[in-house]
Amino acid sequence: MSDIASEESNDEVLPETQTETQPEKNADIKKVIVDGLWKNNPVLVQLLGLCPLLAVTSTVTNALGLSIATLVVLVASNVTVSLIRNWVAKEIRIPVFVMVIASFVTSIELLMNAYSYGLYLSLGIFIPLIVTNCAIIGRAEAFASRNNVKMAALDGLMMGAGFTLVLVILGAVREVLGQGTLFDGADLLLGPWAANLKIVLFQSDTHFLLAILPPGAFFTMGAFIAVKNVIDNTMDEKKKQKEPAKTIERVRITKVSSEL
């Protein structure tokens, strides 16, 4: 385990690698939660899994269906990868991870086919394509393969929650802009009772097609990333203002070139 962690220590910021016996510190748990939901959000920061993101977020229902499926796969694959991390040879770890993910995705696909057939049809090819969602393999490789089961599960849950959050908001914005409704077709996901959930915000004869078409997803997500950056910047500035200004006492720094 140690050699995987040392060899694969890439640029990603990770909590300290822990051994099975060492209990998690509260700070680590908090860091995993904040990373998944905000600081290292799979959609807004890592920009992973854009293909399903752009394709299926035309309504809240579709976005919710796909992101819940992704969340379940993410948690399950993180847990499994973390469990088997000590027995998988480094050279073949990626194929093994993909096999694990693919089997979970297949199970999810069969479950959706059985219990929410309408949503299964409307998501179409994007359910099997969860296998190729880089957010999942990325977390397996970067986090689950070098942390214990509890932390891996938490990370999967939080990354999945961050993914879900952005997708649902994206779906809501696009649905409101595009056709003026919310939760249209929720009965496909939640059963017949949910047909009443549909909220018509405004009635219009003409739909704003661009918001429903994939370019609308690019525009909306660009706006989201911009908003996130604005919030981050203002928070940084506030932090800086709180800290006392450092006084620099050195008068001059002379840099001597080594070539001379």
Binding site: T206, F208, L210
Partner: peptide
Amino acid sequence: VLLLVSFPLQ
């Protein structure tokens, strides 16, 4: 193009 793609009828 935005208008043509979004509101083909009008």
